[in-house]
Design a protein around this nucleic acid. Structure first.
Length: 736
DNA sequence: GTCGCTTCCTTTTTT
DNA sequence: AGGAAGCGAC
């Protein structure tokens, strides 16, 4: 093909086939590192350039905001007209859809989006006496039901969900939620799907608008998302989905792997293109990852072939205690940095966020720069949510969740009794909680409560006035929520929303309140509120600006990663690494009980294997696996055997680290450490040294038996907590 | 109604 | 370890 346009030239034959496929539907099975994003973005460009599609008629859906941003950027760099293509997350698309059709669906166009926390608050409020944990459980079940596209009247509902009186409570929740005029995350998918199914004219409109639909990470779609796709896709819509059944890791959140497995039957005439050339990792890494996931049944099955042959064998280290995990990882990182690499080459992966703490502490002490991806959910912090709740209430006085959050914070003497009384009054009238509070004021008994309510009402009114009056006006044709359209982003002539946020934070008493908390607990709550104020500077100080600001926050809960460019080791959960790659990856905590968890079996176990696969295939050059025999779990020390996944790796595919621990004599690196020394450890108390062994770059590893009877190992080079007391008596008290 | 203390129990993973 | 429920004191 001599006349292939330049932008198609970098593609391999399978990628090219995927990009230039025409027909009705296409399933791209894209293995890890096979250039999937390149294919999607190039395909968008190709459709516009060669096939004459209007950019606006193409919809591309992703799972994360980060993926959407990246995709938009890359598509635009190939073809500038891609700027006008709608590239969004499923949820952001749903929100856009609902805002455009809010009136017809009985929603406010400036509805807020409730997160898990808010859902639980609503459940707790409606059940009154219930416990928060019960409420959380129910809220989670409701979310799962919505993932499965099951309404409260679904005949199979109670077969699937065994929570007490689930049908009734789910229905009640829905009623309560609708009364606020807001939606939850599940609604963002389910309501558009139902609206399209129910309304033929609407369906026709959207099918006319979107002629092409591309879905990324299709293996992680749930039933509701599938139904939304089906409703959007008419007989003439070109549907292209991309995914990898081996990378389906969101079952717990309702992902339905059958969506991808059965796609060709659902969309007859589907062509399947497999991308199995891996451009990311050395073959040695793919062999390890592949040998584990090969143990899964029920996969389409494919073998990745690395373009980069060979490479260093991955390593497996079995450490005695989780105390040694961070030192071990830091040695790997330091070695990488010393041999010409940089800190940012290295990523440390773990199963759950709590595991990051040990790394943070150790790295801070060692002076190794690090950044944590994802765990800091800025917008879910108490103080931030407090201020946001005031803003939501100012925008919508029927927002019961926001109302409950701030009505008595800081405390104004309005307790549960008065609160319930106000909410009930609101329910019986217009639902306006501020108005109900005002009306209820005179019926309340204590003067303190009456004053509190009066103060609260005055604040709420004041904040509402700061935003100007009336609901946001949606000019015909204008779409304030469409980043491609006229956005409400700041026009320099308007006052900034940050001014409003700051006033709200101060005048509500929240800043004072959290300042006091900071003083007691040495937290950073006021600083976080300041950050929130700064974040609002990009929007104008009116209702449209506020609604857009809130939506940005609600759909993208993490602050932009502070400085992605900075040279630092990445700390990240395995789930969060999807779509990322690093030259050097360390997968930690490979222990039975942690990864996989003890109760993982069947489908769950298979999903964990896929998670291992995702984690391992993030590595370009180096892959290190770490297992700790002992680890504190929920405050208790646990002895764990190595993860079964380690046993599933083909023999000879990896090198074992730590052999040196058992061989050789003491080296000079031993320094002052000798068996029999009496020592003191900050956390474990006093004990004595039972053994000293060489440990390569780490110097020596010192085994200590403590008075408690525990035997632990330490690298004196990396811990300052272990201190020599003097020549001990080698266990004189152990006989006691 | 509010505050602080003790006891109990446990989320992996996220839009 | 950390957060929520439960309880008692003011």
């Amino acid at each position: 093909m001599a006349d292939l346009p330049a932008y198609l030239e970098p593609l391999n034959p399978e990628q090219l086939a995927a990009v230039t496929h025409e027909g009705r539907s296409l399933l791209i099975l894209a293995g890890a590192g096979s250039g999937k994003t390149r294919v999607i973005t190039t395909k968008i460009a190709w459709l516009i350039r060669e096939k004459g599609y209007e950019p606006e008629s193409i919809l591309a859906v992703t799972f994360t905001n980060k993926a959407a941003r990246e995709m938009a950027e890359r598509a635009r760099s190939i073809e500038s007209r891609c700027e006008r293509t709608m590239i969004r997350t499923f949820h952001s698309f749903g929100a856009w859809f609902l805002r455009r059709n809010a009136a017809a669906l009985g929603l406010r166009s400036d509805f807020a989006i409730y997160d898990d926390d808010d859902q639980a608050t609503l459940v707790k409020a409606m059940e009154g006496d219930g416990q928060l944990r019960d409420a959380q459980t129910l809220a989670r079940a409701v979310s799962r039901a919505k993932d499965k596209a099951m309404a409260p009247d679904h005949p199979e509902l109670e077969r699937e969900f065994t929570e007490r009186a689930f049908r009734r409570r789910y229905a009640e929740y829905e009623k309560r939620l609708r009364a606020t005029g807001n939606v939850d995350f599940g609604d963002l998918i389910l309501l558009p799907a139902r609206a399209l199914e129910a309304d033929e004219a609407l369906r026709r409109r959207f099918r006319q608008r979107f002629r092409v639909i591309l879905v990324d990470e299709y293996q992680d779609t749930n039933v509701a998302q599938y139904e939304l796709l089906r409703a959007l896709a008419g007989p003439d819509t070109y549907v292209c989905v991309v995914g990898d059944d081996d990378q389906s890791i969101y079952r717990f959140r309702g992902a339905e792997i059958r969506n991808i497995l059965s796609f060709p039957e659902i969309f007859p005439g589907t062509e399947v293109v497999r991308l199995t050339r891996n451009y990311r990792s050395h073959q040695a890494i793919l062999d390890v990852a592949g040998s584990v996931v090969a143990k899964n049944s029920g996969r389409l099955g494919k073998d990745l072939v690395a373009v980069k042959e060979g490479g260093p064998k991955p390593t497996v280290a079995v450490l005695a205690d989780a105390d040694e995990e961070a030192p071990y990882c830091s040695r790997v990182a330091e070695r990488r940095a010393r041999s010409g690499g940089s800190w940012s080459d290295v990523a440390i992966l773990y199963r759950n966020n709590a595991q990051s703490l040990a790394f943070e502490k150790f790295f801070a002490r060692r002076g190794i720069p690090y950044r944590i991806v994802g765990s800091v959910r800025f917008y879910e912090r108490e103080e931030v949510k407090d201020v946001l709740a005031w803003l939501q209430l100012a925008s919508n006085p029927r927002d019961e969740v926001a109302f409950r959050r701030v009505v008595n914070k800081p405390s104004r003497g309005i307790g549960d009794t008065s609160l319930d009384c106000i909410v009930e009054a609101a329910t019986e009238t217009t639902g306006d909680l501020v108005a109900a509070a005002e009306a209820a004021r005179d019926t309340l008994k204590s003067a303190k409560t009456r004053n509190g309510v009066a103060a609260f009402v005055a604040m709420a009114r004041g904040f509402s006035e700061l935003l100007g009056s009336g609901a946001p006006s949606l000019a015909p044709g204008a779409d304030p929520f469409d980043p491609a359209g006229d956005s409400p982003r700041l026009d320099s002539s308007l006052p900034k929303l940050s001014v409003v946020v700051e006033r709200v934070a101060k005048d509500s008493g929240l800043v004072e309140y959290h300042k006091a908390q900071d003083a007691v607990a040495a937290t950073q709550k006021v600083a976080n509120i300041d950050e929130l104020v700064n974040a609002a500077a990009d929007w104008p100080a009116n209702r449209e600006g506020l609604a857009a600001f809130l939506e940005t926050i609600e759909l993208d809960r993490r602050m932009a990663d502070a400085d992605e460019a900075s040279d630092a080791v990445t700390l990240i959960t395995m789930h969060n690494t999807k779509g990322l790659e690093f030259p050097c990856v360390i997968v930690t905590g490979l222990e039975q009980g942690l990864f996989p968890r003890e109760d993982d079996s069947g489908e769950d176990l298979e999903e964990q294997r896929r998670l291992f696969y995702v984690a391992a295939t993030r590595a370009k050059d180096e892959l290190h696996l770490v297992c700790c025999r002992r680890r504190l779990y929920r405050g208790r020390p646990m002895e764990n055997p190595p993860s079964i996944f380690l046993g599933e790796i083909g023999k000879g595919l990896y090198d074992t680290v730590g052999g040196a621990l058992h061989a050789g004599a003491l080296s000079a690196a031993a320094g002052p450490w000798k068996p029999g020394l009496a020592v003191y450890h900050d956390d474990h108390g006093s004990g004595f040294v039972t053994a000293v062994k060489p440990a390569g770059e780490a110097g020596v590893v010192v085994s200590v038996r403590f008075e408690t009877g525990r035997v632990l190992q330490f690298f004196p080079k990396y811990t300052s907590k272990l201190e020599i007391l003097g020549k001990g008596q080698g266990g004189s008290w152990t006989s006691c």
